[in-house]
Amino acid sequence: MSSKVDGSDWEERKVAIYGNSNDEEVYYSCQPTGTGKKIYGIWKDQHFGEQHSLLTDAFQKLNTFASEGPQTQSHSAVQKEWRTLLCLKVLCVLTAAGIIALSICYLLLSLENNKMNNSYNQLQTKLSVMMVNNSRLEDEIKQLRDENEVVTIDHRRLQDDMKNLKIKTDNKKCRNGWMRFGCSCYLKSTFTTSWDKSRSDCQNKGSDLVIIDDEEEQGFITKLNQNGESWIGLEVGWSTQKEKYDWKWVDGSQLTEIFEKKEKIEFTDYNTAVYLNAEGKWKSLPKTRHKTFICEI
Rank of each mutant, 00 (worst) to 15 (best):
residue 1 M to I: 07
residue 3 S to H: 11
residue 7 G to A: 05
residue 9 D to V: 13
residue 10 W to N: 07
residue 13 R to L: 13
residue 18 Y to K: 14
residue 18 Y to N: 15
residue 22 N to R: 13
residue 29 S to H: 06
residue 31 Q to D: 00
residue 34 G to D: 13
residue 35 T to Q: 03
residue 37 K to I: 15
residue 38 K to P: 03
residue 39 I to F: 15
residue 43 W to A: 14
residue 45 D to C: 08
residue 48 F to T: 10
residue 51 Q to I: 13
residue 52 H to L: 10
residue 53 S to V: 13
residue 53 S to E: 11
residue 53 S to Y: 10
residue 55 L to C: 12
residue 61 K to S: 14
residue 63 N to K: 10
residue 66 A to S: 06
residue 67 S to R: 13
residue 69 G to W: 01
residue 70 P to N: 06
residue 71 Q to N: 06
residue 72 T to G: 06
residue 73 Q to L: 14
residue 76 S to N: 13
residue 78 V to H: 13
residue 79 Q to I: 14
residue 80 K to W: 10
residue 86 L to D: 06
residue 87 C to N: 11
residue 89 K to W: 07
residue 94 L to C: 02
residue 99 I to W: 03
residue 100 I to E: 04
residue 100 I to A: 15
residue 103 S to F: 12
residue 108 L to M: 06
residue 111 L to V: 10
residue 114 N to P: 01
residue 119 S to I: 14
residue 120 Y to N: 07
residue 121 N to C: 00
residue 128 S to F: 02
residue 137 L to T: 07
residue 142 K to W: 02
residue 144 L to F: 03
residue 157 R to T: 15
residue 157 R to G: 09
residue 157 R to H: 12
residue 158 L to W: 06
residue 159 Q to A: 15
residue 170 D to Q: 11
residue 172 K to M: 13
residue 177 G to K: 00
residue 180 R to Q: 15
residue 180 R to A: 13
residue 181 F to Q: 04
residue 181 F to S: 02
residue 183 C to D: 05
residue 184 S to E: 03
residue 184 S to V: 01
residue 187 L to I: 06
residue 188 K to I: 12
residue 192 T to H: 08
residue 192 T to Y: 08
residue 195 W to N: 04
residue 198 S to W: 07
residue 199 R to I: 06
residue 199 R to Y: 07
residue 202 C to A: 04
residue 202 C to G: 01
residue 204 N to H: 02
residue 205 K to V: 08
residue 208 D to H: 00
residue 208 D to K: 01
residue 210 V to I: 14
residue 215 E to I: 08
residue 216 E to S: 09
residue 216 E to A: 11
residue 217 E to P: 01
residue 218 Q to A: 09
residue 218 Q to S: 10
residue 220 F to Y: 11
residue 223 K to G: 02
residue 224 L to D: 01
residue 225 N to D: 05
residue 229 E to I: 10
residue 232 I to N: 03
residue 234 L to F: 02
residue 236 V to E: 03
residue 241 Q to C: 04
residue 244 K to C: 12
residue 246 D to V: 04
residue 248 K to V: 11
residue 248 K to S: 06
residue 252 G to D: 05
residue 252 G to H: 03
residue 257 E to Y: 05
residue 258 I to K: 08
residue 259 F to G: 00
residue 262 K to D: 08
residue 263 E to R: 08
residue 264 K to N: 12
residue 265 I to T: 05
residue 268 T to A: 09
residue 269 D to A: 07
residue 272 T to N: 01
residue 272 T to H: 04
residue 274 V to E: 01
residue 275 Y to L: 12
residue 275 Y to K: 07
residue 276 L to P: 00
residue 276 L to Y: 00
residue 277 N to M: 02
residue 281 K to E: 15
residue 289 R to M: 15
residue 290 H to N: 15
residue 297 I to F: 06
